[in-house]
């Protein structure tokens, strides 16, 4: 079977898998950003309990494997009465995992805003919350954007694991096609190229655009 024949026969399934992968990526990314902001800010809270909670969360999710977390959420969580549908379990696991990594990025970015900015905000008598929202976070956001570019690519790669709990993403589709055709080079090779295109020609340019957009917004261009 030529590669063109292969594509015309299985192109639809590969395409639908790609769409599922993209939707998973967007949902997981939204969750990861929200968790990262919350946990990152909590890590800097004065209250020991708040700080401790965030630390435990981050250490658990960074200290174990995404695959372990995915299986635990999908197979073990129902025993505690929380049953997630496989698609939901998939993007929740990926989002929670990358959120833990993102939290450290958020924390590092906030701490690297120059001390003078904190002092200037204090000097005009801003409350801590206003200072964070109006002065520190906007500058921290610029600092952390490049790191988020890498995290989003890690996140895209992470979504491939949801195929193992039978979510019909790109990875799952090519695995199924391979199972019936044994055209491993064509199936897995095509998927590798699609993931590469998504990472290099969609996520990376999007993050570059976002960086430029944010720079304009804070008047640095």
């Amino acid at each position: 079977m030529s590669y063109v024949e292969f594509l015309s026969q299985y192109g639809d399934r590969i395409l639908s898998g790609t769409l599922v992968t993209m939707v998973l990526t967007v949902l997981a990314a939204a969750l990861a950003v929200a968790i990262a902001l919350a946990a990152g800010l909590m890590r800097l809270a004065p209250n020991v309990l708040v700080r401790g909670t965030a630390t435990v969360y981050i250490e658990i999710f960074r200290g174990t494997s995404l695959l372990v977390q995915l299986y635990w959420i999908f197979f073990v969580l129902p025993l505690f009465g929380i049953t997630l549908e496989k698609f939901t379990a998939g993007f929740v696991a990926v989002g929670m995992n990358l959120g833990a990594y993102g939290a450290e990025v958020v924390r590092g970015a906030i701490l690297s805003v120059p001390k003078g900015q904190w002092e200037a905000a204090l000097a005009i008598n801003m409350s801590p919350a206003t200072r964070m929202r109006r002065v520190i976070l906007p500058q921290a956001l610029l600092i952390m954007l490049p790191a988020w570019g890498n995290l989003l690519i890690e996140l895209l790669k992470g979504t491939a694991l949801v195929a193992l709990i039978a979510v019909a993403d790109l990875m799952f589709q090519v695995k199924q096609i391979n199972g019936t055709t044994f055209l491993s080079a064509e199936t897995f090779g095509t998927a590798l190229i699609i993931y590469y295109i998504l990472a290099r020609f969609m996520i990376t340019p999007f993050m570059r655009w976002l960086e430029r957009f944010m720079l304009r917004k804070v008047g640095r261009v």
Binding site: I153, K157, A160
Partner: peptide, 12 residues
């Protein structure tokens, strides 16, 4: 290599 999933590379 850095932009594509490890699990897929393992299968490949």
């Amino acid at each position: 290599i850095r932009s594509t999933p490890l699990v897929l590379q393992i299968f490949f």
